[in-house]
């Protein structure tokens, strides 16, 4: 199960949008939500279905989708979709 397309796309300009789109898809899948409930600035923890197990689920899905391993502290410090995208982006660069 290779995922070079995604990783490759992230290093391009505008990659953040691609990442955000994928992150929103993951959030919707885990939280059973609609895509229009989220945009870059949405505070993730504000979602009604967000809880500690849900947050771990989202993390696992992100790690799987982007082939990254997130620092838990950094992950928990994230508030918005945009911040999450930045975390994914910087993690995949350094990793």
């Amino acid at each position: 199960m290779s995922r070079p397309e995604t990783v490759g796309a992230m290093s391009e300009a505008g990659g953040t949008e691609v990442i955000e789109q994928e992150l929103i898809a993951i959030l919707c899948a885990v939280l059973d939500a609609d895509p229009d409930e989220f945009d870059s600035g949405t505070r993730i923890a504000g979602h009604a279905n967000w809880d500690s197990m849900g947050s771990l689920e989202v993390m696992v899905q992100i790690e799987n989708a982007f082939a990254v391993r997130l620092d838990l502290r950094a992950y928990h410090a994230v508030r918005t979709v945009a911040e999450l995208a930045t975390l994914v982006r910087t993690t995949s660069k350094s990793g």
Binding site: M1, R3, E5, E22, A25, A29, A65
Partner: peptide
């Protein structure tokens, strides 16, 4: 793999 595009994502849907 991206949920948005893969057959896995479609299956899930």
């Amino acid at each position: 793999m991206p949920l948005t595009t893969t057959p896995q994502g479609a299956l899930l849907d």
